[in-house]
Design a protein around this nucleic acid. Sequence first.
DNA 1: CGCCTCCGTTCAGCATCTTGAACACAAGCT
DNA 2: AGCTTGTGTTCAAGATGCTGAACGGAGGCG
Lengths: 198, 198
Amino acid sequence: MTIDIGAKLRSVRVAFGLSQRALARRAGVTNGLISLIEQNRVSPSVSSLKKVLDGVPMTLAEFFAMDEGGQPQVFFEAAELVETGDAAVSRKLVAAARAGRQLSLLHERFAPGAATGDEILEHRGEQAGVVVRGRIELTVGGSTRVLGPGDAYYFACQLPHRFRNAGREVCEIVSAVTPPRPAVAAPVPGFPAGAEPA
Amino acid sequence: MTIDIGAKLRSVRVAFGLSQRALARRAGVTNGLISLIEQNRVSPSVSSLKKVLDGVPMTLAEFFAMDEGGQPQVFFEAAELVETGDAAVSRKLVAAARAGRQLSLLHERFAPGAATGDEILEHRGEQAGVVVRGRIELTVGGSTRVLGPGDAYYFACQLPHRFRNAGREVCEIVSAVTPPRPAVAAPVPGFPAGAEPA
DNA sequence: CGCCTCCGTTCAGCATCTTGAACACAAGCT
DNA sequence: AGCTTGTGTTCAAGATGCTGAACGGAGGCG
């Protein structure tokens, strides 16, 4: 299912109080195109969509970032946090990325020697954290660094990253991950298993 | 002066260590198309670009929000974190919401008796945190709760909220905030004041 | 009523994107 | 040398986006 650009564009246009023709005039395209796009009868080229959004005005990034959100529960006791992982690496999930939330917050604990694999290309969005206790060795992209209490990190999840507790003490981290991208089950035909270089 | 999608896509692809053909296979398009896009010889349709980015994977929003300048800083030492606030409430900002980043991470310290006022309601986005040390009294909307080490919270920033350290010990919190959507920039002639889509 | 102006939709035809199969070059291996 | 596998590029042909001009409907006004 392709994303519903049509509805998105329509809501934007209506929000600005413009008719299809008015928007078309500003954008330098024809009203027919606006109509077709809003009905999802075409998938506009990026250049066309950019022209259209320039007439609003709105950036492509803003357009695609548009989303909704809701928020039920506020407080979470330590005991009721969902815990995943094993003895080596435990993760307490404060707020799942589900339910349209824009943020996941984790309370992680790394036993001495524990490490996360080179989990690759799985996450999206961005990730940040603060070391609360102990020390952790973090590798992102090419570079490696050992972080202690109070130290922090921030990187795009798509970059290959690896956490490892090289010390003797338990390491504790509070980390946040964005966004809550609804896991689209996109089975890629012929997706290679080990096609990753170093 | 079409935006250089080509360079952007190329840098993304290379960052993942994929060849044009490898990416094409994952994305379900042909290698020729990848080549043409990277040379800016075509302006891909949104559906095609989405297919391509799904092979990375990366969302359209992330792609267009991407800064041209490659990846920013990853590691932050405790000492170099920007500190704001006073003696009562100190905030160390790991990553500002600027520069297209989608996440702000704070390391906050509340002295005994310290409190944040009933803050701004204009602040959009969501906010979550974990108590690392001490106890904090949190009021969100109507309800109040005292949270201890390991306890957590999650709420939408629009709700009136207030933090207060009612104990005698310093309270330490790591919290994450999703930034408010950047408002539309240029004033549009004839832009209606308040027209939110339902 | 007729006439005008706006709205969103539709469609033939032209422009552009996209494919599939070539091409040329480089590196490794027999 | 040849052979194989990889890289990125190019191009005719087919698929799709896009235009320009139509269409039908909803008001407003004489």
